[in-house]
Every structure is written in C-alpha cells, then in structure tokens.
C-alpha cells in the first residue's frame, strides 16, 4: 500500500523543502557512472560537494557539469581546521555555486575527523550573520547542538561515528536525546555503515540522514543506495507510526480463551 505523503513528511531546512530525507555524498565512487546511478537510486534531492583548489594546468570537467542539475548541491567545508578557513570556504562555495547554504565542517582532530565545537560555533555565528543557511557537522553532544541552534544553525548534524568508519550509531541514546530536544531538524551525519543504521537514525527521531562512504564504497553502490532510500523511508514511517513500548515479558498476540484442552 502506498502511504500518502502529508505536509509533515516534507523536510524543511531553512527556506528549502525536500521530499527525500536522504542526503548523499559524491565522494569515493568507483567511477562517475556509479555515482550518478547511486544518486538516482537513492532518490536523494541533495548531494554534497567539496570545494577545492583547481589543478593549475587548467579547467577540466566540473562536478556541476557532471551532475547537470539532477540534485541540489550542498557544499561542505571538509578539511577546514579553523573557523576562518571554513568561513572563507563557505563564501567561496557561495560565489562558485550561487548557493547560500553550507554543510559546515571544522575539524579538530585530523585522525578521527572529529569536529572542533569551539571553532564550529564561531564559524556558525559568522556565517549566519553573513546570510548563510548553516548545517554544522557536530559531535553527538546535546549542549553543543543547542548552542549551534542558538547561534542560528538551520539544522544540526551530529555524527553517529567517525566519518567513513561505518561503525553505525555508537550512542543511540545521545542522538535520541538531541532529537527530542533540538529546536531545529537533526540530520545524522557520518558513521552509517549499512541500511539498518540509517533506519535506526530515523527511528531515533532524526529528520534526515547524510551518508557517503556506506554507498560509495559498498560492493554494489547502486544497490546500497536503493537500500538506503528504503531504510530511511522505513525508519521515518516507523517513527511516525509510533513503536510499541518495550516490555520485560511476553504479551500474547493470540486469544487466551478457547484453547483446546482447556
């Protein structure tokens, strides 16, 4: 049965509205066709992109040309280590793409790619003041998420586990608490390994999931992209449907009367 979409099913981030709750990264696919087919199979409307120096020997084919308007790009500030670098990268992205939103990354630990909350807050405030819709990639810490929302972030994007680790959501309770308390949408970003991780994120109350490596490095990226699409939809529907309470003992689902031999 097709469940009709209601207005509640539309994801709103700042002034943007989406039907899909899956954001997909564009990095690390075996080839360009696998990337494009995965984007299509995932049903995503938002694909992330990095901003990097061009190679000095000239201008080649751009990611924009490749994507050809199939999805809305969400530029990131991946690799930035300070608020200053991240702010400039976001401003360059706006100039290059004409887009005023950004997945804000400020990394505090190069090994684990863990967010630097202090610099992240600073960059968020600066970019919000500069007119950006800011989606900060952050730790799974309730207070950090609240401070980011207070600073004007349009969504918060706590990590489930380190970027590219595929470890899943290491602290589901922390994510659930953030979802319950956040005044802005929560997008689970990083750590997803397989479809059940994405479904869990949605069941915990996330508004969307952002993932990349779980699809791009899967043995069959296109099939995994389809699995992620289904998992996000299933998790969202389960969350909206309302799960049953957990109980210690059994609760028979068959009638207790009329048993033979009674």
């Amino acid at each position: 049965m097709e469940i009709p979409m209601t207005t509640d099913d539309v994801l709103t981030i700042g002034a943007r509205r989406f039907r899909s709750r899956l954001f997909l990264g564009t990095g690390g696919y075996p080839n360009q066709k696998a990337m494009l087919d995965s984007l299509a199979a995932s049903g995503t409307e938002v694909a992330t992109a990095a901003i990097r120096r061009i190679s000095l020997d000239g201008y080649g084919e751009s990611l924009i040309d490749v994507l050809g308007g199939r999805v809305t790009l969400l530029p990131n500030t991946a690799g930035c280590l300070t608020a200053k670098e991240a702010v400039l990268t976001a401003q360059l992205a706006r100039e290059a793409l004409g887009l005023d939103w950004v997945k804000l990354e400020v990394i505090g630990d190069r090994e684990l790619l863990y967010p630097d909350s202090e610099e992240l807050l600073k960059a968020t405030a600066e970019l919000v003041a500069d007119g950006f819709t800011v989606l900060p990639y952050c730790t799974d810490d309730l207070v950090t998420c609240r401070k980011l929302a207070d600073a004007g972030a349009a969504a918060v994007m706590p990590l489930g586990a380190p970027i590219g680790s595929g470890l899943g959501i290491r602290n589901p309770h922390a994510i659930e608490v953030i979802c319950a308390r956040s005044p802005v949408p929560v997008i689970l970003d990083a750590g997803i390994g397989t479809a059940s991780d994405a479904a869990l994120a949605m069941e915990l109350g996330c508004a969307a999931v952002l993932l990349n490596t779980a699809v791009s490095k899967a043995r069959d990226p296109v099939r995994m992209a389809a699995a992620m699409r289904d998992a996000v939809a299933a998790g969202w529907n389960a969350r909206q449907a309302g799960r049953i309470p957990r109980r210690f003992g059994a609760e028979a689902s068959s009638p207790q009367l009329g048993l033979i031999g009674s």
Binding site: T26, G28, A49, I64, L92
Partner: peptide, 25 residues
C-alpha cells in the same frame, strides 16, 4: 566576486586561490 575579476589588480606577494566544487561528502 566574479564581476570584480577584471578590475582587481594583482600585486607582488599576493596570495590567490582558485577553487571549484569537487566530489566529496
């Protein structure tokens, strides 16, 4: 800004960055 490219002079010691979007997460 793009509209200022033509009228922005370059001087010795300047630091210029030219960027574009790439595939990434």
């Amino acid at each position: 800004r793009r509209a200022q490219w033509a009228e922005t002079p370059l001087n010795p010691g300047d630091d210029l960055d030219i960027v574009r979007p790439f595939q990434g997460g």
